[in-house]
């Protein structure tokens, strides 16, 4: 555990602040998502209260602090529930793509051969495809297959997009780690291949995965919103989705109704920013090529009085030697 906290402890200065701000933002969204039921005054698909319909496109004010949109939904509640949808989809897709990508990458990198060649070809082809286009294609396919489960199919189409990213990184690091002496040492003690992959390679090749994970999460939020914006993602009656709301607000903006688009858009920007900040902060500390090694400035202390002086005094030995030594330690302290 300590090993995994280490990178955060190593962060200093700007990197640490970047990461801290990111963590605060993302943490807020997580709280909102978990307690959405208590925070939101209305349901995400609620259009009336006590039999009275909300006023269409009502401006922010008492009762609806962020206003009402053109589908009679309370915008504040939509934004709150939207956080839940976004985090559910992203979490699911990141976990799935991470597991599949890492396992396949490890296997391909270690075993090699024709399996490796085929998968690398497939993954590269997918990687070369624009990610949004790929997500659109898959959400088309999946929404046909799995009717009604909007969140799952959205998560799955994002999963497909992100698998190649983990695969490539893990496969390449495995490829070089496979030649390491400790892997040969593991073979020499009689370790079977699955032990070598699980105990010797896995821990050493996944180090860059958290960084990709957080950066991908930010990317996933915007891709999900883009899908919703195009009307391909989650339908409004299944769950609240910022991208969809944004697309509905497109016409309102021309007629001066700014609140219907402003708040879902702001939510997207804020969450993407938060996740990117964490990712960049992590990258800064865990990627040795980006990390600037920090040196403590030192000032050389005055030269120690020559030992001869101590000898000349003949009797005074211990004290002088000790104090001269201490003086150096004090002066040589690291100046910030």
């Amino acid at each position: 555990m300590k090993r995994f906290l280490k990178p955060f402890q190593q962060t200093t200065g700007l990197a640490r602040w970047i990461m801290l701000i990111g963590i605060v933002i993302v943490f807020l969204f997580i709280i909102v998502a978990i307690f959405a039921d208590f925070i939101a005054p209305y349901g995400f698909n609620q259009v009336e209260v006590d039999g009275v319909r909300f006023v269409k496109q009502a401006p922010p004010g008492p009762g609806h602090i962020l206003g009402v949109n053109d589908q009679f939904y309370d915008i504040f509640s939509r934004v709150i529930y939207g956080a839940r949808t976004a985090l559910e989809v992203v979490l699911l897709s990141i976990i799935l793509s991470l597991v599949i990508g890492v396992v396949l990458g490890l296997l391909c990198g270690y075993v090699g051969g024709w399996v490796d060649r085929c998968l690398v070809f497939l993954m590269d082809a997918m990687y070369a495809f624009p990610s949004l286009l790929l997500a659109i294609v898959f959400s088309f396919l999946l929404s046909g297959l799995m009717k009604g489960s909007g969140i799952i199919s959205a998560a799955l189409s994002l999963t497909v997009v992100y698998i190649p990213r983990y695969f490539r990184v893990v496969r390449n690091t495995t490829l070089s780690a496979r030649e390491a002496t400790y892997v040969e040492a593991a073979r020499a003690i009689g370790a079977p291949n699955r032990t070598i992959m699980g105990r010797y390679l896995f821990t050493n090749v996944i180090q860059s995965v958290p960084v990709i994970g957080t950066l991908n999460a930010a990317d996933a939020i915007s891709t999900l919103a883009a899908l919703g914006f195009l009307g391909l993602g989650i339908q409004p009656i299944d769950a609240s989705e910022w991208g969809y709301d944004l697309s509905r607000a497109l016409d309102d903006a021309a007629s001066g109704i700014w609140w219907t688009g402003m708040f879902p858009g702001l939510a997207i920007v804020l969450l993407v920013t938060g996740l990117t900040l964490i990712g960049e902060g992590l990258n800064e500390t865990m990627n040795p090529t980006l990390r600037k090694r920090r040196f403590a400035a030192i000032v050389l202390p005055e030269r120690k009085p020559k030992a001869k002086v101590a000898v000349a005094a003949e009797v005074v030995t211990n004290d002088i030697a000790e104090s001269a030594y201490e003086e150096i330690v004090d002066d040589g302290e690291v100046k910030p």
Partner: peptide, 13 residues
């Protein structure tokens, strides 16, 4: 003559 080269590290020079 009496060359000193010290490196600064977080733990001290």
């Amino acid at each position: 003559e009496d060359i000193r080269i010290w490196y600064g590290t977080p733990k001290g020079p």
